[in-house]
Nucleic acid binder design. Structure first.
Lengths: 106, 106
DNA sequence: AACTTCGATATCGCGACGCGATATCAAGAT
DNA sequence: ATCTTGATATCGCGTCGCGATATCGAAGTT
């Protein structure tokens, strides 16, 4: 396993939390997320993004509804209550991570 | 994929960063990490912990050296320069995550 | 209505991971 | 030498990551 691949493993969870976060604020579709994540320095190929959305959907964290935009069919996702709850737990853990590895590095 | 499994996926990266963080502060061995991570609410079975340490070692992020403690052979790991650099990148990304999903949830 | 286009989403295949269960290893005691 | 026990290592199977590829569907063209 290369360093680059390992480093990516560090962040895959971050990316999923990001997705949940955005879906908790407004309906988002695949391309929106790909672009938004790109702005945060992440890259997510379709082969990862869409299966991830499906998994979040199956887990009951996201709810899907189709919409047609500019003649293109898009699948929008919004966070469910369970998804928002999972996001909150994720935030709590992220806070804990920060406290542990960031705050006390004097 | 269940919600529980998905939630775990969120945190696997956190756990690996935690490991790198501790190894950057002092030599740590498997059991030390299992206990320390447990204090932070994480659980990591041997089947995940040891292969993870080996992967970090192979990637050049950790350096291993054996030591005998209380009649038990232990393998201690410390972060290399490359490991510390990867940790710093991880911290930067964690900060970014925090800014995005924590700070502006008013 | 059939065809074409093309943005958006979906799937395939293979390598690698997660992890419970199991096995192996090593130092001290007897 | 054997047993004990803590520590580490590995196996096997299900699943994931993801580049490459395929499919879908709405609008325009004819």
């Amino acid at each position: 396993m290369s360093g680059r691949e390992l480093t990516r493993e560090f962040f895959l969870g971050f990316i999923k939390l990001h997705i949940l976060h955005h879906a908790a604020q407004e309906p988002v579709c695949g391309v929106d997320l790909a672009e938004e994540l790109g702005r945060h320095g992440y890259e997510l190929s379709p082969g990862t993004l869409y299966p991830t959305l499906h998994a979040l959907n199956r887990a009951g964290y996201l709810k899907q509804h189709d919409r047609t935009v500019h003649g293109r069919r898009r699948k929008y996702y919004v966070a469910t209550d369970a998804g928002s709850a999972a996001l909150e737990r994720g935030k709590a853990q992220a806070r804990e991570l920060i406290r542990e590895i960031l705050d006390n590095d004097d």
